[in-house]
Nucleic acid binder design. Sequence first.
DNA 1: TCCCTGAAGCAAGGACTTTGCTTTAAGCTG
DNA 2: CAGCTTAAAGCAAAGTCCTTGCTTCAGGGA
Lengths: 196, 196
Amino acid sequence: MARPGGRSARVQEAVHTAVRELQAEVGRPELTIPLVAARAGVTPSTVYRRWGDLQELLSDVAVENLRPDAPPQDHGDLAADLRNWAEQFIEEMASPIGRAYIRDALLGAPDGDNAARCSQYAAEQIGVVLARAAERGEDAPGVELVLDRVVAPMMYRILFRSGGPGDSEGAASPGGLTAEYARGLVRDLLDAPGAR
Amino acid sequence: MARPGGRSARVQEAVHTAVRELQAEVGRPELTIPLVAARAGVTPSTVYRRWGDLQELLSDVAVENLRPDAPPQDHGDLAADLRNWAEQFIEEMASPIGRAYIRDALLGAPDGDNAARCSQYAAEQIGVVLARAAERGEDAPGVELVLDRVVAPMMYRILFRSGGPGDSEGAASPGGLTAEYARGLVRDLLDAPGAR
DNA sequence: TCCCTGAAGCAAGGACTTTGCTTTAAGCTG
DNA sequence: CAGCTTAAAGCAAAGTCCTTGCTTCAGGGA
Protein backbone atom coordinates (compact mmCIF):
# COMPACT_ATOMS: atom_id res chain seq x y z
CA MET A 1 0.00 0.00 0.00
CA ALA A 2 1.55 3.25 -1.11
CA ARG A 3 1.43 6.41 0.93
CA PRO A 4 -0.34 9.56 -0.25
CA GLY A 5 0.92 10.41 -3.70
CA GLY A 6 1.33 6.78 -4.69
CA ARG A 7 -0.64 5.28 -7.51
CA SER A 8 -3.05 3.39 -5.30
CA ALA A 9 -3.95 6.57 -3.48
CA ARG A 10 -4.57 8.38 -6.73
CA VAL A 11 -6.83 5.64 -8.00
CA GLN A 12 -8.81 5.52 -4.77
CA GLU A 13 -9.24 9.27 -4.85
CA ALA A 14 -10.32 9.26 -8.48
CA VAL A 15 -12.83 6.48 -7.92
CA HIS A 16 -14.34 8.06 -4.82
CA THR A 17 -14.67 11.37 -6.62
CA ALA A 18 -16.28 9.65 -9.58
CA VAL A 19 -18.83 8.01 -7.28
CA ARG A 20 -19.74 11.30 -5.66
CA GLU A 21 -20.11 13.08 -8.97
CA LEU A 22 -22.14 10.35 -10.59
CA GLN A 23 -24.40 9.90 -7.59
CA ALA A 24 -25.38 13.51 -8.05
CA GLU A 25 -25.56 13.37 -11.83
CA VAL A 26 -27.28 10.14 -12.72
CA GLY A 27 -28.65 8.99 -9.38
CA ARG A 28 -27.98 5.78 -7.58
CA PRO A 29 -30.17 3.39 -9.58
CA GLU A 30 -28.17 4.14 -12.72
CA LEU A 31 -24.84 3.90 -10.96
CA THR A 32 -22.73 0.96 -12.09
CA ILE A 33 -19.13 0.00 -11.62
CA PRO A 34 -18.27 0.27 -15.31
CA LEU A 35 -19.73 3.78 -15.28
CA VAL A 36 -17.73 4.80 -12.24
CA ALA A 37 -14.57 3.27 -13.63
CA ALA A 38 -14.96 5.12 -16.92
CA ARG A 39 -15.40 8.41 -15.11
CA ALA A 40 -12.43 7.75 -12.87
CA GLY A 41 -10.27 6.79 -15.82
CA VAL A 42 -9.54 3.27 -14.64
CA THR A 43 -10.62 -0.14 -15.86
CA PRO A 44 -13.59 -1.82 -14.22
CA SER A 45 -11.51 -4.77 -13.15
CA THR A 46 -9.45 -2.50 -10.96
CA VAL A 47 -12.56 -1.47 -9.08
CA TYR A 48 -13.83 -5.02 -8.82
CA ARG A 49 -10.53 -6.19 -7.41
CA ARG A 50 -10.24 -3.45 -4.82
CA TRP A 51 -13.83 -3.13 -3.68
CA GLY A 52 -15.52 -6.32 -4.75
CA ASP A 53 -18.86 -4.85 -5.67
CA LEU A 54 -20.82 -1.64 -5.84
CA GLN A 55 -22.14 -1.98 -2.29
CA GLU A 56 -18.68 -2.06 -0.82
CA LEU A 57 -17.64 0.94 -2.81
CA LEU A 58 -20.71 2.97 -1.88
CA SER A 59 -20.21 1.96 1.72
CA ASP A 60 -16.67 3.28 1.67
CA VAL A 61 -17.72 6.57 0.17
CA ALA A 62 -20.63 6.90 2.58
CA VAL A 63 -18.39 6.47 5.61
CA GLU A 64 -16.14 9.19 4.31
CA ASN A 65 -19.09 11.47 3.80
CA LEU A 66 -20.26 10.83 7.33
CA ARG A 67 -16.93 11.72 8.87
CA PRO A 68 -17.32 14.92 10.90
CA ASP A 69 -15.26 17.75 9.50
CA ALA A 70 -14.87 19.68 12.74
CA PRO A 71 -15.14 19.15 16.51
CA PRO A 72 -18.51 20.10 17.98
CA GLN A 73 -19.04 23.75 18.83
CA ASP A 74 -18.49 24.97 22.38
CA HIS A 75 -21.57 26.65 23.82
CA GLY A 76 -20.34 27.08 27.34
CA ASP A 77 -22.09 24.24 29.16
CA LEU A 78 -22.85 20.58 28.75
CA ALA A 79 -26.58 20.89 28.20
CA ALA A 80 -26.18 23.42 25.42
CA ASP A 81 -23.34 21.49 23.80
CA LEU A 82 -25.19 18.20 23.79
CA ARG A 83 -28.47 19.75 22.74
CA ASN A 84 -26.81 21.50 19.88
CA TRP A 85 -24.89 18.48 18.77
CA ALA A 86 -27.99 16.31 18.83
CA GLU A 87 -30.01 18.83 16.86
CA GLN A 88 -27.34 19.05 14.21
CA PHE A 89 -26.99 15.29 14.15
CA ILE A 90 -30.66 14.62 13.61
CA GLU A 91 -30.89 17.29 10.98
CA GLU A 92 -28.05 15.83 8.96
CA MET A 93 -28.86 12.18 9.46
CA ALA A 94 -32.61 12.33 9.01
CA SER A 95 -32.38 14.08 5.67
CA PRO A 96 -32.86 11.90 2.62
CA ILE A 97 -29.21 12.20 1.75
CA GLY A 98 -28.10 11.43 5.28
CA ARG A 99 -30.32 8.38 5.44
CA ALA A 100 -28.89 7.16 2.16
CA TYR A 101 -25.36 7.48 3.53
CA ILE A 102 -26.25 5.56 6.65
CA ARG A 103 -27.88 2.80 4.69
CA ASP A 104 -24.92 2.58 2.37
CA ALA A 105 -22.51 2.48 5.27
CA LEU A 106 -24.45 -0.38 6.84
CA LEU A 107 -24.44 -2.21 3.56
CA GLY A 108 -20.71 -2.73 3.51
CA ALA A 109 -18.80 -5.84 4.50
CA PRO A 110 -20.98 -8.09 6.66
CA ASP A 111 -18.45 -7.78 9.48
CA GLY A 112 -19.95 -4.36 10.16
CA ASP A 113 -16.62 -2.65 10.02
CA ASN A 114 -17.80 0.44 8.21
CA ALA A 115 -20.84 0.78 10.41
CA ALA A 116 -18.61 0.58 13.48
CA ARG A 117 -16.59 3.43 12.07
CA CYS A 118 -19.71 5.60 11.89
CA SER A 119 -20.52 4.93 15.49
CA GLN A 120 -16.92 5.68 16.32
CA TYR A 121 -17.28 9.13 14.79
CA ALA A 122 -20.30 9.91 16.92
CA ALA A 123 -18.59 8.55 20.02
CA GLU A 124 -15.57 10.76 19.41
CA GLN A 125 -17.66 13.88 18.98
CA ILE A 126 -19.57 13.12 22.13
CA GLY A 127 -16.32 12.36 23.91
CA VAL A 128 -15.11 15.85 23.13
CA VAL A 129 -18.29 17.39 24.49
CA LEU A 130 -18.12 15.34 27.67
CA ALA A 131 -14.42 16.03 28.20
CA ARG A 132 -15.12 19.75 27.99
CA ALA A 133 -17.84 19.38 30.57
CA ALA A 134 -15.47 17.50 32.86
CA GLU A 135 -12.89 20.26 32.52
CA ARG A 136 -15.49 22.77 33.55
CA GLY A 137 -16.23 20.66 36.59
CA GLU A 138 -19.72 19.74 35.38
CA ASP A 139 -21.29 16.41 36.25
CA ALA A 140 -21.33 14.49 32.98
CA PRO A 141 -22.66 11.07 31.94
CA GLY A 142 -20.50 8.51 30.18
CA VAL A 143 -20.22 8.21 26.42
CA GLU A 144 -22.02 4.87 26.47
CA LEU A 145 -25.02 6.36 28.17
CA VAL A 146 -25.24 9.16 25.63
CA LEU A 147 -25.04 6.65 22.81
CA ASP A 148 -27.81 4.55 24.37
CA ARG A 149 -30.10 7.40 25.28
CA VAL A 150 -29.57 9.95 22.55
CA VAL A 151 -27.89 8.51 19.48
CA ALA A 152 -29.53 5.11 19.44
CA PRO A 153 -33.13 6.36 19.56
CA MET A 154 -32.48 8.80 16.74
CA MET A 155 -30.81 6.17 14.61
CA TYR A 156 -33.54 3.69 15.32
CA ARG A 157 -36.17 6.08 14.07
CA ILE A 158 -34.14 7.00 11.04
CA LEU A 159 -33.61 3.41 10.02
CA PHE A 160 -36.80 1.69 11.10
CA ARG A 161 -39.52 4.23 11.29
CA SER A 162 -39.41 6.52 8.33
CA GLY A 163 -41.54 5.98 5.28
CA GLY A 164 -43.48 3.14 6.80
CA PRO A 165 -47.23 2.76 7.20
CA GLY A 166 -47.30 4.45 10.60
CA ASP A 167 -46.14 7.76 9.26
CA SER A 168 -48.48 10.69 9.20
CA GLU A 169 -49.10 11.79 5.66
CA GLY A 170 -47.78 15.28 5.14
CA ALA A 171 -45.33 15.45 8.04
CA ALA A 172 -42.20 17.41 7.26
CA SER A 173 -39.98 15.17 9.39
CA PRO A 174 -41.54 11.74 9.48
CA GLY A 175 -41.57 9.57 12.56
CA GLY A 176 -40.81 12.32 15.00
CA LEU A 177 -37.41 13.07 13.51
CA THR A 178 -37.36 16.66 14.61
CA ALA A 179 -34.97 18.90 16.48
CA GLU A 180 -37.57 18.98 19.24
CA TYR A 181 -37.33 15.23 19.60
CA ALA A 182 -33.55 15.42 19.79
CA ARG A 183 -33.73 18.09 22.48
CA GLY A 184 -36.16 15.96 24.45
CA LEU A 185 -33.77 13.03 24.46
CA VAL A 186 -30.95 15.20 25.77
CA ARG A 187 -33.20 16.76 28.38
CA ASP A 188 -34.41 13.40 29.66
CA LEU A 189 -30.86 12.17 29.88
CA LEU A 190 -29.49 15.13 31.80
CA ASP A 191 -32.47 15.42 34.14
CA ALA A 192 -31.93 11.90 35.41
CA PRO A 193 -29.18 10.93 37.85
CA GLY A 194 -26.01 11.24 35.76
CA ALA A 195 -24.08 8.00 36.05
CA ARG A 196 -25.26 4.46 35.63
CA MET B 1 -53.47 -10.24 -7.08
CA ALA B 2 -54.93 -13.63 -6.49
CA ARG B 3 -55.92 -14.87 -3.07
CA PRO B 4 -54.25 -17.82 -1.35
CA GLY B 5 -54.36 -20.75 -3.70
CA GLY B 6 -53.96 -18.60 -6.78
CA ARG B 7 -50.97 -18.90 -9.02
CA SER B 8 -49.25 -15.77 -7.75
CA ALA B 9 -49.44 -17.05 -4.21
CA ARG B 10 -47.99 -20.39 -5.20
CA VAL B 11 -45.10 -18.73 -7.00
CA GLN B 12 -44.37 -16.44 -4.09
CA GLU B 13 -44.42 -19.37 -1.70
CA ALA B 14 -42.16 -21.45 -3.92
CA VAL B 15 -39.66 -18.63 -4.34
CA HIS B 16 -39.54 -17.79 -0.65
CA THR B 17 -39.02 -21.43 0.19
CA ALA B 18 -36.29 -21.71 -2.40
CA VAL B 19 -34.50 -18.73 -0.88
CA ARG B 20 -34.64 -20.21 2.59
CA GLU B 21 -33.39 -23.57 1.46
CA LEU B 22 -30.59 -22.21 -0.66
CA GLN B 23 -29.46 -19.75 1.98
CA ALA B 24 -28.86 -22.74 4.20
CA GLU B 25 -27.39 -24.93 1.50
CA VAL B 26 -25.05 -22.75 -0.52
CA GLY B 27 -24.77 -19.63 1.61
CA ARG B 28 -25.61 -16.11 0.71
CA PRO B 29 -22.59 -15.22 -1.45
CA GLU B 30 -23.46 -17.97 -3.91
CA LEU B 31 -27.12 -17.09 -3.94
CA THR B 32 -28.32 -15.72 -7.26
CA ILE B 33 -31.70 -15.11 -8.78
CA PRO B 34 -31.29 -17.69 -11.54
CA LEU B 35 -30.39 -20.23 -8.87
CA VAL B 36 -33.43 -19.40 -6.76
CA ALA B 37 -35.68 -19.43 -9.78
CA ALA B 38 -34.45 -22.85 -10.84
CA ARG B 39 -35.07 -24.28 -7.39
CA ALA B 40 -38.51 -22.71 -7.24
CA GLY B 41 -39.40 -24.04 -10.66
CA VAL B 42 -40.02 -20.64 -12.23
CA THR B 43 -38.16 -18.62 -14.80
CA PRO B 44 -35.73 -15.93 -13.65
CA SER B 45 -37.66 -13.22 -15.41
CA THR B 46 -40.61 -13.91 -13.16
CA VAL B 47 -38.50 -13.18 -10.13
CA TYR B 48 -36.96 -10.10 -11.69
CA ARG B 49 -40.36 -8.72 -12.53
CA ARG B 50 -41.87 -9.32 -9.11
CA TRP B 51 -38.97 -8.44 -6.87
CA GLY B 52 -36.62 -6.38 -8.99
CA ASP B 53 -33.39 -7.68 -7.58
CA LEU B 54 -31.92 -10.07 -5.05
CA GLN B 55 -31.84 -7.48 -2.28
CA GLU B 56 -35.56 -6.91 -2.47
CA LEU B 57 -36.23 -10.60 -2.43
CA LEU B 58 -33.95 -11.24 0.53
CA SER B 59 -35.51 -8.30 2.31
CA ASP B 60 -38.96 -9.79 1.85
CA VAL B 61 -37.88 -13.14 3.17
CA ALA B 62 -36.03 -11.58 6.09
CA VAL B 63 -39.08 -9.65 7.22
CA GLU B 64 -41.08 -12.84 7.17
CA ASN B 65 -38.44 -14.58 9.22
CA LEU B 66 -38.46 -11.77 11.75
CA ARG B 67 -42.21 -11.93 12.29
CA PRO B 68 -42.90 -13.14 15.82
CA ASP B 69 -44.69 -16.44 15.87
CA ALA B 70 -46.37 -16.01 19.23
CA PRO B 71 -47.35 -13.27 21.66
CA PRO B 72 -44.83 -12.69 24.47
CA GLN B 73 -45.10 -14.97 27.49
CA ASP B 74 -46.95 -13.79 30.57
CA HIS B 75 -44.78 -13.86 33.69
CA GLY B 76 -47.17 -12.18 36.03
CA ASP B 77 -45.84 -8.64 36.20
CA LEU B 78 -44.54 -5.94 33.90
CA ALA B 79 -40.91 -6.05 34.99
CA ALA B 80 -40.64 -9.78 34.41
CA ASP B 81 -42.49 -9.62 31.11
CA LEU B 82 -40.36 -6.82 29.72
CA ARG B 83 -37.14 -8.27 31.04
CA ASN B 84 -37.93 -11.59 29.50
CA TRP B 85 -38.97 -10.15 26.20
CA ALA B 86 -35.82 -8.03 25.98
CA GLU B 87 -33.58 -10.97 26.80
CA GLN B 88 -35.19 -13.07 24.15
CA PHE B 89 -35.06 -10.23 21.68
CA ILE B 90 -31.36 -9.60 22.12
CA GLU B 91 -30.58 -13.26 21.96
CA GLU B 92 -32.35 -13.71 18.66
CA MET B 93 -31.34 -10.45 17.06
CA ALA B 94 -27.71 -10.39 18.09
CA SER B 95 -27.00 -13.85 16.73
CA PRO B 96 -25.25 -13.97 13.37
CA ILE B 97 -28.41 -15.19 11.70
CA GLY B 98 -30.55 -12.54 13.37
CA ARG B 99 -28.17 -9.80 12.36
CA ALA B 100 -28.22 -11.04 8.80
CA TYR B 101 -32.01 -10.87 8.75
CA ILE B 102 -32.01 -7.35 10.10
CA ARG B 103 -29.48 -6.20 7.57
CA ASP B 104 -31.43 -7.81 4.77
CA ALA B 105 -34.65 -6.24 5.94
CA LEU B 106 -33.04 -2.81 5.99
CA LEU B 107 -31.68 -3.37 2.52
CA GLY B 108 -35.08 -3.47 0.90
CA ALA B 109 -36.85 -0.69 -0.94
CA PRO B 110 -35.30 2.67 -0.05
CA ASP B 111 -38.65 3.84 1.30
CA GLY B 112 -37.89 1.80 4.39
CA ASP B 113 -41.15 -0.04 4.19
CA ASN B 114 -39.81 -3.42 5.19
CA ALA B 115 -37.75 -1.95 8.00
CA ALA B 116 -40.84 -0.19 9.31
CA ARG B 117 -42.60 -3.52 9.38
CA CYS B 118 -39.89 -4.94 11.64
CA SER B 119 -40.28 -2.10 14.06
CA GLN B 120 -43.99 -2.65 13.89
CA TYR B 121 -43.56 -6.23 15.03
CA ALA B 122 -41.55 -5.14 18.05
CA ALA B 123 -44.06 -2.41 18.86
CA GLU B 124 -46.92 -4.88 18.75
CA GLN B 125 -45.20 -7.32 21.07
CA ILE B 126 -44.41 -4.55 23.50
CA GLY B 127 -47.95 -3.29 23.18
CA VAL B 128 -49.25 -6.64 24.35
CA VAL B 129 -46.93 -6.60 27.36
CA LEU B 130 -47.94 -3.09 28.31
CA ALA B 131 -51.62 -3.76 27.85
CA ARG B 132 -51.37 -6.71 30.19
CA ALA B 133 -49.68 -4.51 32.75
CA ALA B 134 -52.44 -1.93 32.43
CA GLU B 135 -55.07 -4.62 32.99
CA ARG B 136 -53.29 -5.62 36.16
CA GLY B 137 -53.39 -2.02 37.30
CA GLU B 138 -49.62 -1.61 37.05
CA ASP B 139 -48.07 1.72 36.17
CA ALA B 140 -46.66 1.23 32.66
CA PRO B 141 -44.65 3.43 30.32
CA GLY B 142 -45.73 4.09 26.72
CA VAL B 143 -44.68 1.98 23.77
CA GLU B 144 -42.63 4.86 22.39
CA LEU B 145 -40.59 5.09 25.53
CA VAL B 146 -39.86 1.39 25.51
CA LEU B 147 -38.77 1.58 21.90
CA ASP B 148 -36.47 4.50 22.66
CA ARG B 149 -34.99 3.14 25.84
CA VAL B 150 -34.86 -0.60 25.28
CA VAL B 151 -35.21 -1.57 21.63
CA ALA B 152 -33.24 1.27 20.07
CA PRO B 153 -30.08 0.80 22.15
CA MET B 154 -30.02 -2.91 21.41
CA MET B 155 -30.55 -2.37 17.72
CA TYR B 156 -27.93 0.33 17.63
CA ARG B 157 -25.35 -1.98 19.10
CA ILE B 158 -26.32 -4.80 16.82
CA LEU B 159 -26.04 -2.70 13.72
CA PHE B 160 -23.24 -0.30 14.51
CA ARG B 161 -21.07 -1.85 17.14
CA SER B 162 -20.45 -5.47 16.40
CA GLY B 163 -17.38 -6.71 14.62
CA GLY B 164 -15.73 -3.33 14.57
CA PRO B 165 -12.29 -2.33 15.87
CA GLY B 166 -13.54 -1.58 19.38
CA ASP B 167 -14.54 -5.14 20.04
CA SER B 168 -12.70 -7.28 22.51
CA GLU B 169 -11.10 -10.23 20.81
CA GLY B 170 -12.63 -13.40 22.13
CA ALA B 171 -15.85 -12.00 23.55
CA ALA B 172 -18.79 -14.34 23.20
CA SER B 173 -21.28 -11.53 22.62
CA PRO B 174 -19.45 -8.61 21.13
CA GLY B 175 -20.17 -5.01 22.00
CA GLY B 176 -22.08 -5.75 25.17
CA LEU B 177 -24.84 -7.64 23.41
CA THR B 178 -25.71 -9.77 26.38
CA ALA B 179 -28.85 -10.65 28.27
CA GLU B 180 -27.38 -8.71 31.18
CA TYR B 181 -27.26 -5.58 29.05
CA ALA B 182 -30.87 -6.07 28.01
CA ARG B 183 -31.93 -6.50 31.63
CA GLY B 184 -30.08 -3.32 32.55
CA LEU B 185 -31.98 -1.33 29.95
CA VAL B 186 -35.31 -2.57 31.26
CA ARG B 187 -34.28 -1.91 34.85
CA ASP B 188 -33.19 1.64 34.10
CA LEU B 189 -36.43 2.32 32.30
CA LEU B 190 -38.73 0.99 35.01
CA ASP B 191 -36.78 2.58 37.87
CA ALA B 192 -37.27 6.05 36.43
CA PRO B 193 -40.59 7.95 36.59
CA GLY B 194 -42.79 6.02 34.19
CA ALA B 195 -44.30 8.50 31.78
CA ARG B 196 -42.61 11.14 29.69
C1' DT C 1 20.98 1.77 -9.77
C1' DC C 2 18.70 -2.48 -10.06
C1' DC C 3 15.41 -5.61 -8.33
C1' DC C 4 10.90 -6.87 -6.08
C1' DT C 5 6.32 -6.57 -5.03
C1' DG C 6 1.85 -5.13 -5.28
C1' DA C 7 -1.48 -2.96 -8.06
C1' DA C 8 -3.46 -1.67 -12.68
C1' DG C 9 -4.47 -2.73 -17.61
C1' DC C 10 -6.22 -5.79 -21.02
C1' DA C 11 -9.13 -9.14 -22.98
C1' DA C 12 -11.96 -13.19 -23.29
C1' DG C 13 -15.35 -15.98 -21.35
C1' DG C 14 -19.23 -16.73 -18.59
C1' DA C 15 -23.09 -15.23 -15.74
C1' DC C 16 -26.61 -12.29 -14.81
C1' DT C 17 -30.34 -8.72 -16.24
C1' DT C 18 -33.48 -6.73 -19.16
C1' DT C 19 -37.28 -6.71 -22.38
C1' DG C 20 -40.80 -7.65 -26.04
C1' DC C 21 -43.88 -11.01 -27.23
C1' DT C 22 -46.57 -15.14 -26.33
C1' DT C 23 -49.12 -18.17 -23.41
C1' DT C 24 -51.50 -19.46 -19.35
C1' DA C 25 -54.72 -19.36 -15.59
C1' DA C 26 -57.60 -17.07 -12.23
C1' DG C 27 -61.60 -14.21 -11.72
C1' DC C 28 -65.63 -12.13 -13.65
C1' DT C 29 -69.86 -11.64 -16.59
C1' DG C 30 -73.67 -12.90 -19.08
C1' DC D 1 -71.64 -23.01 -16.96
C1' DA D 2 -69.23 -21.04 -20.99
C1' DG D 3 -66.76 -17.25 -22.76
C1' DC D 4 -64.20 -13.05 -21.83
C1' DT D 5 -60.70 -10.11 -19.45
C1' DT D 6 -56.60 -9.29 -17.42
C1' DA D 7 -52.74 -9.80 -14.60
C1' DA D 8 -48.94 -12.63 -14.20
C1' DA D 9 -45.70 -16.35 -15.95
C1' DG D 10 -42.96 -18.45 -19.72
C1' DC D 11 -39.81 -17.95 -23.42
C1' DA D 12 -35.99 -16.25 -25.87
C1' DA D 13 -32.77 -12.91 -27.53
C1' DA D 14 -29.90 -9.06 -26.73
C1' DG D 15 -27.26 -6.38 -23.78
C1' DT D 16 -24.64 -5.42 -19.71
C1' DC D 17 -22.03 -6.67 -16.06
C1' DC D 18 -18.73 -9.67 -13.50
C1' DT D 19 -14.81 -12.76 -13.27
C1' DT D 20 -10.19 -14.17 -14.16
C1' DG D 21 -5.61 -15.29 -16.13
C1' DC D 22 -1.94 -13.00 -17.93
C1' DT D 23 0.79 -8.91 -18.91
C1' DT D 24 2.54 -4.39 -17.85
C1' DC D 25 3.72 -0.69 -14.92
C1' DA D 26 5.08 2.18 -10.91
C1' DG D 27 6.82 2.78 -6.34
C1' DG D 28 9.79 1.19 -2.47
C1' DG D 29 13.86 -1.28 -0.83
C1' DA D 30 18.64 -3.50 -1.09
